[in-house]
Design a binder for these strands. Structure first.
Length: 247
DNA sequence: TTCGTCAAGAAGAAGA
DNA sequence: TCTTCTTCTTGACGAA
């Protein structure tokens, strides 16, 4: 659909303007920057954790045992391979009840986010080699890079859908207004026509007026119901011309 | 791979 | 100033 194509072109431009940092630009302007990277409690991704940092994933965790196990397993794999593991900066902290379940959520650093954004601009999907390389560069697990791209794609699509929706709403409103205006115009024209004398509703070429009595005439032989005669169209600027009709 | 969802974490608002 | 509540963003995961 051409219309949609046009919409897309416009929308892509709009998104492009925001692409420097979706996370920050989608925020309310009144708010402070969402990510505080110099925050003292910001989990440092440079901290390497061993796979044991999850300890016993005891009760109280909002995450299922399965997901905790998965994280731990992957972390263990990473530590065995000597790879960086910065998933959970302060994982392994004990809760009040002494259980060790605190799987803190990873927050990417500004630099990491920036690099990922740059990579996303180049390719919205990664092949295994690209994923590995990016993970190495960012000191993240490939799975984290993969998930980041998945989320990024999903959220870009959502954003695009929202923008599309807004655009279509505006189009709809415009067309509704135009439709309303045209309907009004048609109504007015119909009203005007109904109020006109019947001779006004006839084609001008078939009407003429008697120069002496000023009666309207009809030259059309089919117009038998009309109580006046017609003549060829009179020369408007010369009332005495031969084309003038007479009663 | 997408989609829907959960939940951590950050930040603002409101109230004591 | 501190606590609590609310809202938003985003990392992560399971199902399809």
């Amino acid at each position: 659909m051409g219309f949609h194509g046009f919409a897309k072109a416009e929308l892509v431009l709009e998104l492009g303007l925001n692409s420097s940092s979706m996370a920050e630009n989608t925020r309310k302007p009144t708010k402070k920057p969402y990510l505080s990277f110099d925050h003292p409690h910001e989990p440092s991704l440079s901290l390497a954790l061993s796979g044991d940092s999850y300890g016993g994933a005891g009760g109280g965790s909002s995450f299922s045992n399965a997901s905790v196990k998965r994280e731990r397993d992957v972390a263990s794999e990473e530590s065995e391979r000597g790879g960086a593991n910065n998933t959970c900066g302060e994982d392994g902290e004990e809760d009040e009840d002494g259980s060790v379940n605190g799987r803190k959520k990873l927050r990417l650093t500004k630099a990491q986010s920036g690099l990922l954004e740059e990579a996303f601009k180049l390719h919205t999907s990664l092949n295994p080699q690209q994923k590995q390389k990016l993970a190495r560069d960012l000191k993240l697990r490939p799975r984290q890079v993969e998930v980041w791209f998945q989320n990024r794609r999903a959220r870009t699509k959502l954003k695009q859908t929202e923008v599309d929706c807004e655009y279509l709403k505006k189009c709809c409103k415009r067309l509704t207004d135009e439709n309303q205006r045209l309907r009004q115009e048609v109504h007015e024209l119909k009203t005007q026509k109904a109020l006109q004398p019947i001779y006004m509703q006839m084609p001008a070429a078939t009407l003429t007026m008697c120069p002496s009595c000023e009666q309207i005439g009809d030259t059309n032989p089919a117009s038998k119901n009309i109580p006046f005669t017609m003549a060829p169209k009179r020369d408007f600027f010369n009332p005495y011309s031969s084309s003038s009709a007479a009663c």
